[in-house]
């Protein structure tokens, strides 16, 4: 397929994304085994996996709809519906809990006027509780896409929200400034 793929809802995958899907199908030992990375290509581009993208993977990887659907729904990071612009995931597992994720979540809920799992009416923010994010010694931690923030206090969360409202994603604690 060389033309950008149009979805009924108007979502389209770029030619670059389609080329990446073809390359993955060729690189993995079987086409079906490329299913997860191909779903990631779609997630990275659209932020969710629309029905037309499922049809595309069925065709490209010679797998059934059921197979794509079961993988799409089993893994929490693949999303079947459009997401807010910024999805903030706060770890609420044991180490972050001990270090204060509960008051942090309560603060963010109050600040945004939504409950955990909810989305602001302007579609800008969504907050979710996340299971262990692998930053236990630097908790509480908060993840925004590929950006991880550590030792997050309510004040730091406020600064993050203010910055995001201006469209600026602050530097993550995992970025190695000047080296990457």
């Amino acid at each position: 397929m060389t033309q950008p793929m149009e979805d009924t809802a108007g979502f389209a995958l770029s030619p670059g994304a389609l080329a990446r899907i073809d390359a993955l199908a060729a690189r993995y030992p079987t086409k079906a085994s490329a299913l997860m990375p191909c779903l990631w290509v779609i997630m990275d581009e659209l932020g969710w996996v629309p029905p037309s993208a499922i049809d595309l993977l069925v065709e490209k990887l010679s797998v059934t709809h059921a197979r794509v659907n079961e993988v799409l729904t089993f893994y929490t990071m693949f999303r079947e519906t459009p997401q807010a612009k910024y999805t903030l995931q706060v770890c609420h597992n044991i180490s972050c809990h001990i270090m204060g994720s509960k008051p942090l979540i309560a603060h963010m809920e109050q600040k945004l006027g939504i409950k955990l799992g909810g989305r602001t009416s302007d579609g800008l923010f969504q907050i979710e509780g996340a299971e262990c994010l692998g930053a236990c010694g630097m908790g509480p931690c908060l993840q925004l896409g590929r950006h991880l923030y550590e030792n997050v206090t309510p004040a730091r969360a406020d600064a993050l929200l203010d910055s995001l409202r201006k469209g600026i994603v602050p530097r993550a604690d995992t970025d190695r400034e000047g080296v990457d």
Partner: peptide
Amino acid sequence: IVHKGAGAYICGEETGLINSVEGRK
């Protein structure tokens, strides 16, 4: 190949991990 998981604790179990890379739950 660097393979990216997608949020499932159970994939840390070796057969779960293998099934995951086969493109399954």
